[in-house]
Nucleic acid binder design. Structure first.
Lengths: 334, 334
DNA sequence: TTGAAAGCGCTAACAC
DNA sequence: GTGTTAGCGCTTTCAA
């Protein structure tokens, strides 16, 4: 491995001078600078980050922890995070938590060990608080993505879950739907709670009572969707629309609905949060509240980098609004 | 920051003893081990990887470089890589190259600097050779994913592009299609070349001449699809089927075809490589040669880890076969 | 403008 | 079983 000492020797100067050239610090004669630079290029020198980290106490590593990269929302978020990280000179350490507290915990231990300069995380849920506290204890800045954690204060990038849910609900109401089932993600996430709130408010502002018999909790990891849809179908007063908390749930619901012989939107309208990547959809079908996934990542990295520089700054929450995309999974009630 | 010295002091032993406890090396009395462990837990000790890296010359970091995480094939590949990396005790450093040689280059510099123990890369194309050589020069093991690079020898995970393309072509022929357009990705990738080969062989084994007027190169980054489709439409003998080299191209082609007022498969059959994530598709439509994307990542990490342990081993190429999924984007020619 | 010394936190090699 | 020493490659501090 080529070190600054090898460069120094060849250049006839000290390692310190080479270090100065690399970092553009101190005053160095142009002549020396050129010579050192030439030799570095010639010898194919690349600085050793581990060594630098050890003395500088920074790694230029940011950790991104998301439930599942396979989910298009997080995919695009990751893209935004990577682009922004690169722009700020950071690299991204990447892990999936699978909506699983233990995995998340293990990941965060690894992150602490790797001494990442900061963590971007879409936490599994309220149960993530202890992990997150650990990070704080180790003085590692955290930015929360998409989900808040009660009792844990940090910079946060949030969607307008409540408003979005209200808008989606209002749209269905406008189409004449009166019985709208709600299939939520895990209530241990702030996002699920906010969406439920928005749904309720949407209903009540139209003077409609919320019927708990058609409100379900599926968990974001899509558990028992078939069962839930089964229950739905057996209801005396079957709903005419389904509001799914995210697109994974919506798609699973649609599959179950299809399996039960229903056609969408003829027999049932369906809406949800999060759009699918336009490039990879044959023909956009779902009516959604589209969240700016890319910005979640990009803004998150921005906040994190600021926070790394200034740890005393007041935590901020950035709320990104969603756009209602009305498509073919919804239809006016006949 | 808590160091092994802090632990040692409190435990009344030397730093070396603490190090031994952490790494489970050497012989240590059970009593000492317990005491040290207790104190580590109590003080919330986490080893500093940078320091360890510096002496061990290994970082337990693997770099994953792919063209675009937004592409479902790479998303799932990344998932497989992450799961496998975790299993082997590595973390994943993650970057997108955007099918862009310069970005790829910049990324690889960062990787060298970070002293990743190995690199998994789906290279931009044949032009990646110099970058890759640099990695080799720095003694960083490389595993090629999805694409070979002529003149660069390395462990490689490949799909059966040629066979898959032949199968897809054969299927279209069996449906009666005789004029099958081929829209390829960048010919500077081995994958594109192999797929073209498979297409040609498929045709010729049915005794059909390949008409270069209906073979196009779009670049995997989807350039000028509309234009290509335009040309296609203007052809005197319009093709009855389109073979797209990957799903991004296929979807773009379909959009253009739709825009031109064609219906699929009625007016045109469409096939391609790579399936979409089943969880996130309302209703699978595309007839594809589905590649086991997850295995690409998982197998790749396996090869890389082996290679890191034994650098003298003969490079291996693992070929993963694809599965023909016949769906509704294709129909027998009337 | 440049250099020498010390130390970041850890482990390999050797001593006891 | 345990400790001492040295050094991984770099930068900070202080001196010249």
């Amino acid at each position: 491995m080529v070190t600054i000492y090898d460069i120094a020797e060849r250049a006839g100067c000290s390692a310190m001078t080479v270090s100065r050239v690399i970092n553009n610090t101190g005053r160095i004669s142009e002549k020396t600078r050129q010579r050192v630079k030439a030799i570095m290029a010639e010898m194919n020198y690349v600085p050793n980050i581990a060594a630098r980290s050890l003395v500088l106490q920074e790694t230029k590593l940011l950790s991104l922890v998301i439930p599942d990269i396979t989910n298009p929302f997080y995919t695009t978020l990751a893209r935004g995070a990577e682009d922004a990280a690169r722009k700020f000179g950071y690299q991204l350490l990447f892990s999936n938590s699978d909506e699983n507290l233990e995995k998340e915990n293990a990941t965060l231990d690894a992150v602490i060990s790797a001494r990442a300069d900061g963590v971007l995380i879409a936490p599994v849920g309220d149960g993530s608080a202890p992990c997150l506290e650990q990070l704080k204890q180790h003085n590692i800045p955290v930015v929360l993505l998409d989900r808040e954690v009660p009792g844990f204060e940090a910079d946060t990038v949030l969607g307008d879950s409540k408003e979005g849910a209200k808008a989606l609900t209002a749209m269905l109401l406008a189409q004449g739907h009166r019985r709208i089932a709600f299939i939520n993600g895990s209530l241990s996430t702030s996002t699920a709670r906010q969406r439920l709130l928005g749904y309720r408010e949407g209903l009540s502002s139209a003077g409609i009572a919320c019927d708990d018999a058609i409100v379900f909790e599926a968990g974001f990891a899509d558990t028992g969707l078939a069962e839930i849809i089964g229950k739905l179908m057996d209801l005396e007063q079957r709903p005419t629309a389904v509001f799914a908390a995210n697109n994974k749930i919506a798609l699973a619901a649609i599959r179950s609905l299809h399996a039960a012989g229903l056609s969408i939107p003829r027999d049932m309208s369906v809406v949800c949060f999060d759009d699918l990547e336009a490039d990879y959809v044959v023909d956009p079908f779902l009516t959604v509240a589209a969240q700016p996934a890319y910005e979640f990542g990009a803004v998150g990295v921005g906040l994190l980098v600021e926070r790394i520089k200034d740890r005393s700054r007041q935590p901020r929450t950035v709320t990104l609004s969603s756009a209602l995309m009305k498509r073919r999974s919804t239809a006016p009630l006949r």
